[in-house]
Design a binder for these strands. Sequence first.
DNA 1: CGGACCTTTGAAGACATTCAAGGCCTGTGG
DNA 2: CCACAGGCCTTGAATGTCTTCAAAGGTCCG
Lengths: 262, 262
Amino acid sequence: MAADRFIIERDFLIIETTVKKIIVGFAKPLSCHNCRMNNFCLPLGLDADDLDKLEELIERKKPLQPREGVFFSGDPFTSIYAVRSGSIKSFCIDPDGREQVTGFYFPGEIFGWDGLADEHYQNTAIALETTSVCEIPYEQLDDLGNSIPSIQKHMMRLISREINADQRLIALLAGNSAQQKIASLLLSISDRLVKQKLSSTRLWLPMSRGEISNYLGLTVETVSRVLGHFQRKKYLAVNKKEIEILDKQALRDLMLSAEEVE
Amino acid sequence: MAADRFIIERDFLIIETTVKKIIVGFAKPLSCHNCRMNNFCLPLGLDADDLDKLEELIERKKPLQPREGVFFSGDPFTSIYAVRSGSIKSFCIDPDGREQVTGFYFPGEIFGWDGLADEHYQNTAIALETTSVCEIPYEQLDDLGNSIPSIQKHMMRLISREINADQRLIALLAGNSAQQKIASLLLSISDRLVKQKLSSTRLWLPMSRGEISNYLGLTVETVSRVLGHFQRKKYLAVNKKEIEILDKQALRDLMLSAEEVE
DNA sequence: CGGACCTTTGAAGACATTCAAGGCCTGTGG
DNA sequence: CCACAGGCCTTGAATGTCTTCAAAGGTCCG
């Protein structure tokens, strides 16, 4: 099986082979709290026919409702997923039964790699809001990878990115105060929204305080207090889940030095 | 390029192809604090000729001295590594300059995947004691993977394992007390030594208290105090870096329930 | 032997948690 | 449409765990 045509650009994969035509792509975001409307994959040069195929692929999966699951811990590993619009939280259950949030995923980001090692997902992934995801069957991707080397390479890079992200979180959890953790999370989300060409200062948090606190290894109360503190210091304007970053530099400084005058 | 013969068993790879003969293997441990002497790869059915090749490959890399580096943060990504004997610590430098230990690796374990994403290692890896590692050039592995699908699959699994390990650490860091973290680390090391057919109760920690504390997001003093506490409770016998686990069940209970009577 | 480094131990203090209560929003049913 | 229940979020005070600061004992290696 040889590829007639394939395009790889960052996280987009569009492949045509003589045997089968597979379009594995995920679009720019549609519309949601953090998203703007945009056309599918057109910048990658898809023609109308390809677009239909893609639409077909995407339409088959109707948007997930808030708290609806994509896969559950223990499910057989079949696919990886890309967020098209909305947001996803992934979490695992500790041996002692507690839930541990392991990641938040925004449009353009890929999740589900954790299931590869022993062919069962370790995490459960659920939608935080109305969310559409693109399912990418691993077997198909694997087949393609066997004939198209650069796809394999690309996949490996994507997995490795997950490792990098996890290790950043480890560093954050291990060596930082509550203020630093929260500043860091906000800046991270801000940066990731920029990639969607959204405002980097006005953002809407799809997750609850409880989910943030769990992710950062804190309690709900602490998260609330720190956000309150940041607001008093005019670093942020907080209105429930709407956050406006007023002084990004202050947050950056806080993240780095941990020193601050009251 | 087709493979005439290749054997994959857990983390061992031995491959022969018509074009080139590549033996990517790492042996059972030689001898060190935590190791027993053992023959190379013989259980996998290598003949004398293969064994010579393997020896050659391995001998070329002389053992690392304690604190000697395997690769450094920022180096171009070329290879992954398997620990043959000894132990490795990997760590990265936070934006604020602090060191953060991201993993300890024992014989049979593979490290270096973190460099794949952007072709430069994120972590620095150094030997904790006299250590020998097996370098596995990624390009060769990649080439082979292109002709032998199951190797690709195997590689992906190995990478995914790293994700799983990192996520376990995240859960540990986020939701546990100092006692739980340390109990968990000791049990983890104990389990990994069993895989080398070593005692699961008597173990020798190759890393310093400082490295443990950094890894677990604690201070040196806390680690020392908790070990002291465990010793007083007769869970452990601690003699510097030698640890004997006296009551494994107590540690397990501690890890799970967090409840304990004084 | 001396010095550097690691480890242990103590006491004081800081930071985050726990416990407790009240406010705010949402959705439901009367 | 309003009332009410149940979440979720915030705020306060007390507690506790871990850290910080300080000092002393050990170990390794020159």
